[in-house]
């Protein structure tokens, strides 16, 4: 899979690509793409894409579990999903502070 799919907008060149699992709560980010993770087969990436973790979508971590920082509640588009860490590792994002979804 191509991890370097182009972000839709050119608004975040200052931020490096990272895993969704490492995103701070409250910071918005743009999805770059999904890939299989260290503990997740490609089916996990496939399902994440089906849930809406697609290039260009805005994501935001709504909440995180205590201590282990797992699970992670993520808002993507107009839905919210709870993910475990190994799943959130499969989503590559670029932070885009202040971004809002405007279609």
């Amino acid at each position: 899979m191509d991890d370097r799919a182009t972000p839709l907008a050119a608004d975040a060149p200052a931020f490096a690509e990272m895993a969704l699992a490492d995103l701070q709560p409250g910071i918005t980010a743009r999805v770059v793409g999904v890939c299989s993770g260290p503990h997740a087969p490609i089916e996990v990436a496939q399902r994440l894409a089906e849930l809406g973790f697609l290039p260009g979508e805005i994501v935001r971590v709504v909440a995180r579990g205590f201590l282990s920082r797992e699970p992670i509640a993520v808002r993507v588009g107009t839905g919210t999903f709870a993910l475990r860490r190994f799943e959130a590792d499969c989503v590559r994002v670029v932070p885009a502070p202040g971004a809002r979804v405007i279609i």
Binding site: R60, V62, A63, G65, T80, R100, I103
Partner: peptide, 19 residues
């Protein structure tokens, strides 16, 4: 049009899902 900004549910979740 819809926004990814905090919604009513997000505000509840900020408390209810707080660690």
């Amino acid at each position: 049009e819809d926004f990814a900004g905090p919604t009513f549910s997000d505000r509840i979740d900020a408390v209810v899902l707080h660690p």
